[in-house]
Structures are given as structure tokens and as C-alpha cells.
């Protein structure tokens, strides 16, 4: 039984390791931390395998572990940003570097990632799961253990927040 568990987790690592790593990286914005968290995801899944009854897909279950661990790590590292602080940070960046230089330096992807990092964690998780992982709302609700209505609401607010941030960055234009 022990050997089969080992093989199962090893299989999951092969199938989902990179995907989970990338999603966690977008959430925590730190490569080494993302790697550490991803390692812990699989170690934890190995130890908690008896809790996995196969009701959800392994990926959903692993993702739930990843989200919970990311939250814990971010709380410890105090990287969670709150809404009122975000505008000030943006202005301080502009003082150091002109917008044109910034645009020249950063790729669109990096700029989008910066905008996503400015989102509060509760919206960031949903945005990444929905837009980057292309998950259905029902799956996201299962992962985050919330109702679909709550997820829909967070997604809507998160998107609005993201678009406002992107507009300020010059990534998106006003609708004609």
C-alpha cells in the first residue's frame, strides 16, 4: 500500500507539478517560495492520501492544498496587500522611473503579472484560477470551498480591480 501511494504521488508530480508551480508562482510572486510550496504540496498530499476519497479530481485536491499553503506562507511573510495601500505604492514607483522607460523595460506579461500582484489575495486566487488555469466556476468553488455565487462575485470585483490597475498602467484602453 505504501509503495502504491508513493507511485501515485510521483505520477501526480509528473502530471501536475509544472502547472501547480506556475500557478503558485503567480500567487506568491517568488520563484523559490513557489518551489518550496509546490514541494510541500506533494509531500502533504502523500501524508494525507487517506483523506483523498476521489470525489474531486486529484488536480482540484492538490490545488486546494497549494492555495492553503500559499495563503499560510504569505501571511507569514506579510506580503498580503490591502486595498487602501495599493494606490500609494503605484505612485512611488512612478517617481523613480518614467512611464516610457518602464514600458520599454517590461514585457506585457510582466506588467500584467505586476497588476495581478497588486490585487488583494482573495481576488488574485480567483483571477489566476479562472483566467490562467481556465477553470470552471464550479471547480474554483470546490477548491476554495466557497459557493459559486461568492466566486462569481469575487471574480467580478477582481476583474474590475484588475482592469482599473491595467488602465493606469496603460495596458488597456477605455471602451469606446
Amino acid at each position: 500500500m505504501e509503495d502504491r501511494s508513493w507511485e501515485k504521488v510521483d505520477d501526480w508530480m509528473r502530471l501536475y507539478g509544472d502547472r501547480i508551480m506556475r500557478a503558485v508562482y503567480l500567487i506568491v510572486d517568488d520563484y523559490h517560495l513557489a518551489e518550496e510550496i509546490t514541494q510541500e504540496v506533494f509531500v502533504k498530499s502523500y501524508h494525507s492520501l487517506q483523506n483523498f476519497r476521489g470525489e474531486a479530481s486529484p488536480y482540484t485536491w492538490l490545488y486546494r492544498i497549494a492555495i492553503n499553503l500559499s495563503r499560510d506562507y504569505l501571511k507569514r511573510k506579510s506580503k498580503v496587500k490591502f486595498l487602501p495601500l495599493l494606490a500609494e505604492e503605484q505612485h512611488s514607483d512612478n517617481l523613480a522611473e518614467s512611464l516610457e522607460d518602464k514600458i520599454a523595460r517590461l514585457t506585457t506579461g510582466k506588467r500584467i503579472r505586476d497588476c495581478i500582484n497588486k490585487l488583494p489575495l482573495i481576488y488574485r486566487e480567483v483571477i489566476i484560477l479562472y483566467y490562467f488555469e481556465d477553470m470552471k466556476l464550479s471547480n474554483i468553488a470546490q477548491i476554495l470551498k466557497q459557493s459559486e455565487g461568492t466566486i462569481k462575485s469575487k471574480l467580478s470585483r477582481g476583474r474590475e480591480f484588475l482592469e482599473n490597475t491595467m488602465r493606469k498602467e496603460g495596458l488597456v484602453n477605455e471602451e469606446e
Partner: peptide, 17 residues
């Protein structure tokens, strides 16, 4: 959605476990 996903995938294409 497509635009966001493509750019994020491009941004994370060199991220591997």
C-alpha cells in the same frame, strides 16, 4: 480572457518544477 491567459503563459513559460 484569452489575452490575459496568453500573456501569463508567456510570462511563466520558463517556470518549471
Amino acid at each position: 480572457k484569452d489575452w490575459l491567459r496568453e500573456n501569463l503563459q508567456e510570462e511563466t513559460k520558463e517556470i518549471y518544477f
